[in-house]
Design a protein around this nucleic acid. Structure first.
Lengths: 332, 332
DNA sequence: TAAGCCAAGTAATACGTATAACGTCAGGCC
DNA sequence: GGCCTGACGTTATACGTATTACTTGGCTTA
């Protein structure tokens, strides 16, 4: 009735529990004769034996499990980060457990309660950094994603070349003749977005203009915010630089409502290159972020840290993808 | 140096390990005097004690953890299912571990390897049913999402009223005068999509026409598929019923490329009501699926099953949301 | 033939927790 | 004073596994 243990297998096979463990552990070649080994293996499958992982974890003192802390999974970017992390983890016999930080809809506060697995380490996005205190994750090896390398206690950092991405966008727009910019920024306060804002400001020289509007990270929020900002026709910006494709999608809707053509009257750029970027019309000029690679590197870094190897790597490169939402600045 | 155990706390507090466990378990009021209890609690926090979950799981024979098997997290629908499931789980001190079934990009095959946590039960989407065999999840309490209630060995089923959703769409389009339909169906083979297709076929009476085109679940795939299907101008359908918002977004792009206006020349409907549905232009007429509720009910069902209570509930209702991508059939 | 050695297996143990079973001590009651 | 009772702790144990240290018997080797 109840799940068979290694001892049950041993009894059924007429050997000791230790032998079963040795055979199934597959780690000590030659310790058990091939004859006995196959017999044990057969018995195990016949009984449908599956090792009790709680017991194994206790014995080994490790769970080969990492916690990934992200702001929200419904954000495709982080879904992809997870995918990348989970892939690398699986290749090393590790697992990844999620902790979507509480944004009101997420699960409760304590990931040690919500993810009953014991953990070996933590990978956390800077956008969910506040959750880390609640975790007490500081007691575990920690890898930070997109956070200030100079701050914090993380054992390793995985960063994207955000400033360079912003540079590519800005130069692209400047080359197209744009001078009046609007930065549609995320209202979420995080190092990532701060970096982008700084880069943008630094790149716009004299003779240019920059306004900043902050918006929640939703299509509708962005639409509302931008509609208000663009209401007055005089001195309208000719280019809207968005912190995120989601914001850019909202910006497009706002523009259309105001009767502005994209990109003839107004250029709009995104960030991230989500599936959304090519689903909307016009397709968004945006910066492609290798989200899966972020997850992969995060997990790789954590694995290194767990082995005691210090880990470091250059920022992951990002790439401007020019599509249809950006064009020459209107001459009028 | 190493993590403190309950015994360390006991020694430091000058009591026995059992007392520490009793105090921190918070489960036997009156077993320990308030004086001792607070002393123990203080010592525990002072030492930074955190119970070893592997040991607890072993002792209790349960992990309060469920496995959620979904085809892909980058699909917003399943991300929301996860969110709902995780919320209910957290409310009951449970955790949810993910197993995105192998679509080529997912982690390896064995979720017992990838999710090192021992599991109490499994919640699986029918779209990932094939993964279940690999899991051997049949040995665990199983809740199926959107699968044939008559088939399989699941202890409970959580279904959406897909057929009714299709009915609402069809009646909406019929009322608008449409007679020539094209069903842009998902190439993924699952009960969910089969149900929708059957419903559509059954609802279209004499005097109507129905073609079916299958497409992979991507914007680009849908665009390509539909562009080919609509190339010939004669007898062109006036309404495209899509199995999914992603397909509908692709359909919109195909229409625009062919110079067809939406909805004047061609009505297009989606399914799911993802964020995408309102991000594209025109906003999609679609069927809203309560994705979070699916997750919530799935977890609720599993919790019931784990307690030995049989669980059953009517299909979750779905609701047609009429937006701008559907309109009267062209009269010409 | 004795000493040593290898192959093949087993007994014993520890991981850290929760809890059942068992003291112990003081006070109340007849 | 003896006995029961409750309050407060403690001792002991089991959960299922991986691994270390040990046993055993057969074989080689000097």
């Amino acid at each position: 009735m109840t799940r068979p243990t290694s001892r049950d297998v041993a009894t059924a096979a007429g050997v000791s529990q230790a032998t079963v463990s040795l055979v199934l552990g597959d780690k000590w070649p030659g310790r058990v004769s091939e004859r006995t080994a196959t017999h044990v293996r057969e018995t195990a499958t016949r009984l449908g034996y599956r090792p009790n992982l709680a017991a194994r974890n206790l014995r080994l003192g490790t769970t080969r499990t990492a916690l990934l802390v992200v702001p929200a999974l419904t954000n495709e970017f982080f879904a992809r980060v997870y995918t990348g992390a989970a892939r690398v983890a699986a290749e090393h016999g590790f697992g990844v457990v999620l902790y979507p930080s509480p944004d009101g809809t997420g699960p409760a506060r304590d990931p040690f309660a919500s993810a009953r697995a014991a953990l070996d380490g933590v990978i956390a996005s800077s956008m969910a950094a506040d959750a880390l205190d609640a975790i007490g994750g500081n007691t575990l090896p920690l890898v930070m994603l997109d956070s200030d390398p100079a701050a914090g206690t993380a054992a390793a950092h995985v960063n994207l070349a955000m400033a360079d991405g912003m540079r590519q966008i800005t130069e692209h727009l400047l080359a197209l003749g744009h001078r009046r910019f609007l930065h549609l920024a995320s209202a979420v306060d995080s190092w990532t977005f701060d970096t982008r804002a700084e880069a943008l400001t630094a790149l716009l020289g004299p003779g240019t203009e920059l306004r900043t509007v902050r918006s929640p990270l939703t299509v509708d929020g962005a639409r509302t915010a931008l509609e208000a900002a663009l209401a007055a026709p005089q001195d309208r910006p000719t280019a809207v630089v968005c912190d995120d494709d989601i914001l850019a999608a909202g910006a497009c809707k706002a523009a259309r409502r105001l009767g502005l053509r994209i990109p003839e009257d107004l250029s709009i750029t995104g960030f991230d290159d989500l599936a959304l970027a090519t689903a909307v019309e016009p397709e968004l000029t945006t910066v492609h972020l290798p989200a899966e690679r972020v997850g992969e590197q995060g997990m790789t870094a954590l694995l290194a840290v767990l082995e005691g190897t210090p880990w470091t790597a250059p920022d992951l490169p990002v790439r401007l993808v020019v599509r249809d939402s950006s064009g020459p600045a209107p001459t009028a």
